[in-house]
């Protein structure tokens, strides 16, 4: 994980990669908007839109924020709060969703 630091990537390839990632992000933005506009059932559309958003976020995190070159410790620093948040949100379901929804 920590091997192959960014400095070892040739500079030209590096810039090209960044532009490709940007192009992908723009394409995914258009895909997301298309899902929004096209007559797709709402639940499916929402799921697809957030799947697209997750892919976009992963692209930025891995390439622009260099997460794919980072030490395990950095992954832990990012992953643990995310996990806690998921747990926190699940715990709140009975109180927020059921109370008002019921």
């Amino acid at each position: 994980m920590s091997h192959g630091t960014l400095e070892s990537v040739p500079a030209d390839n590096e810039s090209r990669l960044y532009v490709i990632v940007w192009a992908l992000l723009v394409v995914l933005l258009i895909v997301g908007l298309a899902i929004f506009i096209l007559p797709i059932p709402r639940e499916a559309a929402v799921a697809l839109i957030f799947a697209v958003a997750a892919v976009k976020a992963t692209l930025v995190l891995r390439n622009y924020m260099h997460l794919k070159h980072e030490h395990l410790l950095i992954y832990i620093i990012v992953a643990v709060p995310a996990l806690f948040l998921v747990g926190f949100a699940i715990t709140l379901i009975p109180d927020i969703v059921f109370r008002h929804g019921g």
Partner: peptide, 14 residues
């Protein structure tokens, strides 16, 4: 107005 006071307690005690 649609808000949830218990939510504060969850956020606070977390």
């Amino acid at each position: 107005r649609g808000g949830d006071p218990i939510l504060w307690e969850h956020l606070f005690w977390f």
